[in-house]
């Protein structure tokens, strides 16, 4: 395969992920080719839809740990994943790392609902990052992309089972001596499907009806069980 103009080409094994009744996370293969030289690097970012994230702080009152304060951050990516073929700090400089969003601690987020001072924001921000990582919403996955003969790359993206729905952007970047020389974008659409989606929609839109159905179903099964077991 010959690729001219140092262009990178990439594709995903799937562009649509459906959250159905049997969904427990998804694996998507990202693969492609680049016109590389020795010691070139590949960095991939997958970022999900943005939204509000509430950070809650607990403190001890009357001997019990209870929520004492909370801050809502706007424009937080609900999913953010960074992958590379080696330590990003060895690929490019600090400035580029922050600018391109290769560091989870310095990702650009929106302002907070409640006005807070900068040092205070830093504390809440750190708590947010730590928790987004521990709940698998955000992930830094360095040295995980496989490169082959400076031409081919491949990486399996694992979407966790708690993934949110929406459009996920996939950006693939080719670095040479710390400089970006080529990039390619793709996207994955994640949506609820089948019974799972219908149930969710009915629960949201026809919530009273949904409650009645839930009760009728329970009454019916209770009656039915009584009928069957009376005969045994």
């Amino acid at each position: 395969m010959v690729i001219a103009n140092e262009n990178i080409v990439a594709d995903l094994s799937e562009n649509n992920v459906e959250i159905s009744t049997t969904f427990s996370g998804a694996k998507i293969l990202l693969f492609g080719a680049y016109d590389g030289k020795k010691d070139d690097d590949i960095i991939v970012i997958v970022s999900g839809p943005k939204g509000q994230v509430k950070v809650e702080k607990k403190s001890k009152k009357y001997g019990i740990w209870m929520i004492s304060d909370s801050i809502i951050f706007n424009n937080v990516p609900k999913y953010y994943y960074i992958a590379s073929n080696r330590k990003i700090i060895n690929i490019t400089n600090k400035k580029e790392i922050i600018k391109k969003g290769f560091d989870l601690n310095t990702l650009k987020l929106g302002n907070t609902e409640k006005k807070i001072s900068l040092p205070e924001r830093e504390i809440w921000r750190k708590a947010l990052t730590r928790n987004m990582i521990s709940q698998k919403f955000w992930k830094l996955d360095e040295s995980s992309i496989l490169l082959n003969k400076n031409t081919l790359f491949r990486k399996t993206l694992s979407l966790p089972s708690n993934v949110s729905t929406g459009l996920f952007n996939v950006i693939i970047m080719h670095y040479r001596k710390g400089l970006l020389i080529s990039r390619e974008e793709s996207s994955i659409k994640i949506s609820k499907s089948g019974i799972s989606a219908s149930i969710y929609n009915i629960a949201q839109e026809y919530s009273a009806l949904y409650g009645i159905i839930a009760v009728v179903l329970a009454v019916f099964i209770g009656w039915f069980a009584n009928m069957i077991f009376r005969r045994i």
Binding site: V53, K54, V55, K58, S59, W65, R130, N131, Q135
Partner: peptide, 15 residues
């Protein structure tokens, strides 16, 4: 309720 939580901060991803 009475033991110190692993992390005193927690998050909720809002809709």
């Amino acid at each position: 309720l009475i033991t110190i939580p692993k992390d005193i901060f927690s998050i909720i991803v809002l809709k």
